[in-house]
Write a protein that binds this DNA or RNA. Structure first.
Length: 682
DNA sequence: GAAAATCCGT
């Protein structure tokens, strides 16, 4: 009897066996079961197994693996339970099945614990250990990984390529890069194993150490395979070096390696980041031709490309062709719709998802934040807090806190802060900074200060936020003191720090102090002043009634005067009631920003303050016909959970009549009391 | 003589 190599041979062979009435040997049947399983013919594989008059442990293992391959873990488990004599392969197969299935990881662990204690007394071998390492890497369970590692050392199972590469991967994915490196160094003391090298290159990329990754990649580069290339392409793409990723992608083909799903997925993400629609489209057509456009990584990559390029029609078209729900593609589209302000479409997609991960929630809520629909953002966040799952995206909190900050509403900010503490999220530096910033900008400088002072480590950005917070609240002394402390601790201030410091000075009229810091900035810290610093200085002089100094200062600014600087200067003129200088600056400003309605309003305001109604009328006339899309300034009141916003002459509130009746009442009382006082003084 | 494990893509 000959060995069946292809499926066709196998089927022919099987038919002959049945016709001839022979009973194949157990060995031959096992081979056939494996062949059927490899070709996805699970029913045929099982029938053959079922009809075997006698079976050995190979038969059981093969058919169990057939079910695992077909994703049918319950049948695999039933067969596992029925195996008369299990060996390590029986255990390893099912452990691997559970380890790779989301939500069933605990069963893998239980089987691992049971295998050596069970009546079967099956020994854990290298297969068991590498599978378990894979699982702990997936769960980022460093302490389990370490225990497995020491077990491997004890049983001398730590030296093969399988062991070394799994260990590198485990340490890297558990956030312990130095240990990964140690394992790699020790493992490659004799001969370098390619898979281990690839795992180490990937670990370097994960860590952002791209130079190290490249050195490794090019050392012994004769042995590189397509995985090595894909690793580098992905590494560049994930670390913001899209051009290099594309270069490697091209180079890979030149070197004779063919592109696969991994290569396409990575280069697609590079093109998306660059919004390179044309090149992206080429990849699109290429993958369609190759027939791999149904791969979920590829198809969602294409959806992401079109979404990032603002082509939502194409994105929808590609998404509709996908047969299964894909939260990654939906996230891309939500972000895409949010970017064009179409939150209704974004919400439709969000609601269409049966299974929402934290990234989708973050995208949707952040979309509301970005389109300034903060009521919707907070409402959705309330629903987010009520769900059972406990996974988070730090970006969600940063964006929501940002919404509180721009609206200066502290209560929702406090709720977010409380929620962060309640669920015990590992406090990310960026999140803490956002919390401090929120309290600063919402007027709760005391809270901000307390959090700031209790932090063990404080970086530059946090200091900048706190100094700016003090400055905005008129605590110039605290701002300057914190600056000095920061410098004493060895933190180098940056351009942002000086904006905050100069702001502190201008708010309290500390002209000389401000001048000193301004020159110290360049002389002591080699930071070139930017637009904001110049504007700060002009404002500083303006507020201190030193318009002449402002004018002299402005003449020395070595960059082109832009709207911010001129606007600030006009404000300074306004404060010093100097219409002549304002006029000159106005001409310059209108040349730069003739279309910006806000500037006209600012100018008109400057003249109105002077009582120059004719001038104001002139400006208003110039304004007419231009598109004036100034954001309307509004006032708001928080009553209970609702915030009520008002603009001037606003009668849209549902209780506007009652509000105005009350207002009339108050005005009358005010007028009456003024009359009383006048009568008294006479 | 046969069965199980490692690295790369949202």
């Amino acid at each position: 009897m000959s060995l069946a190599r292809s499926l066709k041979d196998g089927l022919q062979f099987h038919a002959q066996v049945i016709k001839s009435g022979f009973t194949p040997t157990v060995f031959t049947s096992n081979q056939l079961i494996h062949l059927y399983s490899k070709n996805g013919l699970i029913r045929e594989a099982y029938r053959l197994f079922d009809e075997m008059p006698e079976r050995n442990v190979y038969s059981w293992n093969t058919v169990i693996n057939a079910y695992i391959k077909a994703q049918n873990l319950s049948n695999a488990q039933n067969l596992f339970d029925a195996v008369p004599e299990k060996d390590s392969v029986t255990y390893n197969s099912l452990i691997s099945g559970y380890a790779n299935r989301d939500g069933f990881e605990d069963r893998a662990v239980r089987l691992f614990l049971q295998m050596q204690n069970d009546c079967d007394g099956v020994r854990r071998d290298e297969f068991t250990l590498t599978t378990m390492l894979n699982l702990t890497a997936k769960l980022s369970a460093l302490s389990w990984g370490q225990q497995l590692h020491s077990f491997m050392l004890k049983t001398a199972n730590d030296l093969s390529g399988f062991a070394v590469s799994s260990l590198i991967d485990m340490y890297s994915k558990s956030g312990s890069f130095p240990d990964a490196w140690t394992v790699f160094e020790r493992g490659s003391s004799s001969a370098v194993d390619l898979v281990s090298k690839n795992a180490m290159v990937a670990a370097c990329c994960r860590e952002g150490k791209l130079d190290l990754a490249q050195n490794l990649f090019w050392s012994k580069h004769q042995m590189n395979d397509s995985v090595s290339w894909n690793t580098m392409i992905a590494g560049f793409a994930q670390n913001g070096q899209e051009e290099k990723a594309i270069e490697m992608f091209k180079c890979m083909a030149v070197e004779g390696f063919s592109w696969n799903e991994h290569s396409f997925a990575s280069v697609l993400s590079a093109f998306s980041s660059l919004k390179a629609l044309k090149m992206g489209k080429e990849i699109h057509s290429w993958v369609v031709k190759k027939g791999i456009d149904s791969n979920p990584f590829i198809s969602s990559g294409i959806v992401d490309l079109y979404s990032k390029c603002g082509n939502m029609n194409y994105a929808e078209f590609v998404y509709l062709k996908m047969k299964v729900e894909n939260s990654f593609a939906v996230t891309s589209m939500i972000v895409g719709y949010a970017a064009e302000g179409n939150m209704a479409e974004a919400r439709r997609l969000f609601d269409s998802l049966a299974d929402k991960n934290s990234v989708v929630w973050t995208a949707m809520i952040s979309g509301y934040v970005k389109t300034q629909q903060s009521d919707d953002a907070f409402e959705l966040f309330r629903q987010f807090m009520e769900r059972d799952a406990r996974d988070y995206d730090a970006l969600l909190f940063i964006n929501l806190l940002g919404a509180c900050t721009t609206q200066a509403i502290v209560d929702p900010g406090k709720q977010i802060h409380a929620y962060i503490m309640k669920v015990g999220i590992e406090i990310d530096e960026k999140v803490v900074t956002a919390v401090v910033d929120m309290y600063c900008k919402c007027g709760s400088i005391g809270y901000a200060e307390r959090i700031f002072q209790n932090l063990a480590s404080r970086d530059l950005i946090l200091h900048n936020v706190m100094i700016a917070g003090y400055a905005h609240h008129g605590y110039e002394y605290e701002a300057l003191q914190l600056f000095e402390e920061m410098v004493k601790r060895g933190l180098q201030p940056d351009a942002v720090t000086f904006v905050a410091i100069l702001s502190a000075c201008r708010h309290s009229g500390l002209v000389e102090v401000g001048e000193n810091y301004f020159s110290s900035m360049t002389e002591d810290y080699s930071i070139l002043p930017e637009r904001d610093h110049y504007a700060c200085m002009i404002d500083l002089y303006g507020r201190a009634n030193q318009l002449e100094k402002a004018t002299v200062f402005m003449d020395k600014i070595p960059m082109e005067l832009d709207a911010i600087i001129l606007g600030t200067f006009i404000n300074a003129c306004k404060m010093n009631r100097n219409v002549k200088l304002a006029n000159d600056a106005e001409e310059k400003l209108l040349k730069i920003e003739g279309d910006n309605g806000a500037r006209y309003v600012q100018l008109a305001g400057a003249y109105a303050s002077e009582g120059r109604w004719d001038e104001m009328g002139r400006i208003m006339k110039k304004m007419r016909g231009k598109e004036l899309r100034k954001h309307t300034g509004c006032s708001w009141l928080q009553v209970g959970n609702r915030r009520h916003t008002f603009i001037s002459n606003d009668r849209s509130h549902s209780e506007t009549e009652a509000v105005h009746a009350m207002l009339d009442c108050l005005i009358q009382e005010l007028v009456a009391s003024i009359h009383d006082e006048e009568e008294l003084s006479q």
